[in-house]
Each structure stands twice: as C-alpha cells, then as structure tokens.
Nucleic acid binder design. Structure first.
Lengths: 193, 193
DNA sequence: AGGGTTGATTAGACCGGTCGTCTAGTTTCT
DNA sequence: AGAAACTAGACGACCGGTCTAATCAACCCT
C-alpha cells in the first residue's frame, strides 16, 4: 500500500520528467504523461493536488538527484578540487551533446515557468542556489589545496554557472555543442591562472 | 490597403510580443492576444498561416528591432568602443530590473521553443548569432582604438553573451538584479585588463 | 476466521478553452 | 460597378485540468 503509493507517484514523476524535459511544461498534457506511465488519469489527483504542484514536485525530485550526484562527484577524494570541477563541466558538456532531449531542466523550464508559477520558480531558485553554493565551496577547497588560484569563490561560482546556463541555451538553439566547448575553454582559462 | 494591412499585422505582433514575453508561447492562446489587440480572430489567419508561423514572425520582428537598437548604440561615435559596450550591458541590466515582465525573448522563449518548432528555433539561433557577431565586431573596434585589451574577439563575445543570458535566467528565477550585477562586474573586470 | 468497514485507488464524465476552418459580410481601390 | 483585400465571428474537433462516484484492498472486531 505505502510501497505501491510511492512507486506510482515516483513513476509518474520520472515519466513526466523525461517528457517535460523534451517538450516543456505548458505544452504537455497530463494525458500524455499518464498514458506513457500507464497510470490512469483519475489517479493523478490522488497523488498531486494540481498540475502546478506536480511540476514543483518534479523539480524537487530533479534537484534532489542532481545535488546527490554533485555531492558524490565533489567528494571524490582521489582527485584535486580542480580536477573534480573540471569533471563536472565535462559531464555537463557530454550529457547535453549526447542526447538531443535536454537534460538540464533549469535551462528548459526556467524561462517558461518563472512567471507562470511561483512555487515552481522558488524551487528552481533554491535548487540553482544550492548548485552555485556547492561550486563555491569546491572552489574554496581548491584554493586551499592549491589546485585553483585565489579568487572570490562566491562570485566566481555564480559567474561560471551563469556562463554555462547561457551556453546550454545557445547550444540548444544551435543544436550543437560549440557554445559549451567555448564555455569549457573559458572556464579552464579562468581557473588556471 | 497596404498601410492598413501592415498596421493590423504589426499591431497583432506587438500586442502578442508583450503578452508572450510575460506568459510564454504555449500557454497563451490566440484568443487572448487577439482580444487584447482588438482584432477579430478571423483576421488572424489572413495575416498568418498558423500560430507557429506567427511566433516566428514575432521573433523576426523582435530581433529586427533589437538589432536596430544595437546598431544605433554601437555606432555612437562620441564614445569609445569600450564605453559603447559598457552602455549595452548597463541597459540590459536596467531594462530587466525595471519591469518584472521579461524583455529578453531569448531567455523567455529559448528553452521552451527550441524543441517545439524548428522555424522558431532557427530564428532565435540566427538572431542570437547576429547579436554575438555585432558584439565581436565592437570588441575588435575597441582593440583597434585601444579602449579594450587584445583578446579573441569572437570567443569573448560569445562568452559574454552566454554569461548575460545565464545571468538573466537566474535574475528571473530570483526576481532580483543581483545576478546581472555580478555579470556586469565580471564583464568590466574582463574588459579592463 | 470471515464479513463489514475504511481508506486508497481508479474510471471516466464534465466544462471550458484550444487552434484552426469556413462562409458571409464589409470595406477599399480601380 | 466590380474585384480584391480584409473582417467578422460561429463552428468543429479536440484536449486541458478537475471532480465525483464507483471499485478495490487491507484491516479490525466480534
């Protein structure tokens, strides 16, 4: 009962994430998601209050996993902070280059959702804040272990994240990885001075 | 006849631009736009083939004006290239800070539209390309007149534009200008070395 | 142990709004 | 006056999210 509950809920979240990452939020109907998930429409409102609340839950789930990945990577003790960070950017590039369907929900949904739903906007705001602050923390680690030159960690982390968000957007518009490669090159240059 | 034609068409484009800049593309119906414009629905399909084609026309119109503004600013001979560029970024910041409703359609629609409509994606791609190349050209001018240090103009222009797109997105999520101020500070630092 | 009760889950009806079409009608210019 | 450009808005087919009523599963109490 509880198990089943959670499974169904989680299953709907994951199915929706894949579809919404491709088509956006407003232009996808519940029907499409629920059909794909094999869950009847009627059940939806048992698990979620509304489409909006569902969207928020979806983003929360997304960030939870994203941040868990990040923590795993950033904790890798075998590598220097500089290497861990390089690995993060490289992954970002690889992931987006690999599949046409967007992975980064911040880029995909940020613009659309920001003035559409406050709860979703806040979830995105908090999630991106977490990401930036983890990058900042890693930068500090890197300055401490000497693998990264001394910089203002918070400002640099934000700048880098902004740069990569913009690069993702351009890459999406151009359907090629060049903007991300540009960002990577710039990032390398910035952190190796 | 031609005049009237153009007026109505243009009026629908401008009204739609305001509404769509606030709510996104998919979540706005033609009805809302046409009611706001005071144009009956029947006329719409005289001027546009479909909602998609309308969206593309809207973006073309947007970029045409954006680029015209840009050209006017970048041609200001009283200022050094460095000053002209600084003015561009400052305007970006001011405009976004002033009105909650998003001005930059690239940020607002980029993520949403990229996998929704190829014509719209291509229009965005070309428009952003034009912007970046104008920035690059101005950077070169600045290197020639000595107001900007020597850099790879193309790569730097792209990096800066990416940075500002990402900053716009974060500012939208946070509903405050701080990310843009961060971008501005970084930009200044980069161009004054 | 088994029947009844309770809460979790499903099914699908429902209303309103969507895009796009289509036929009449009006205006404008030649 | 006639032809073209343009407007008007009803209409159809469909799909959106929501909600109510029925079904199902699990547990409790006698």
């Amino acid at each position: 009962m509880k198990t089943r509950h959670d499974n169904t809920r989680q299953h709907v979240l994951e199915t929706g994430q894949r579809i919404i990452a491709g088509k956006g939020f407003a232009s996808v109907g519940l029907n499409e998601i629920l059909t794909a998930a094999g869950v009847p429409k009627g059940s939806f409102y048992h698990y979620f209050e509304s489409k909006e609340q569902y969207g928020q839950a979806l983003l929360e789930d997304y960030f939870a996993r994203y941040l868990a990945d990040l923590d795993a990577l950033f904790a890798a003790e075998a590598l220097s902070a500089q290497e861990r960070l390089a690995c993060y950017w490289q992954r970002w590039l690889d992931k987006q280059a690999a599949c046409a369907e967007q992975q980064c929900l911040v880029v995909k949904l940020g613009g659309e959702v920001a003035d559409l739903s406050d709860p979703m906007r806040e979830t995105l705001r908090d999630g991106t804040g977490q990401i930036v602050s983890r990058i900042a923390r890693l930068l500090e680690t890197g300055m401490a272990d000497g693998s990264i030159p001394p910089l203002d960690a918070a400002a640099t982390a934000q700048t880098l994240y902004q740069l990569w968000l913009g690069a993702s957007l351009l890459a999406k518009l151009q359907r090629q990885a060049q903007p991300l490669e540009n960002a990577l090159q710039f990032t390398r240059q910035l952190l190796s001075r």
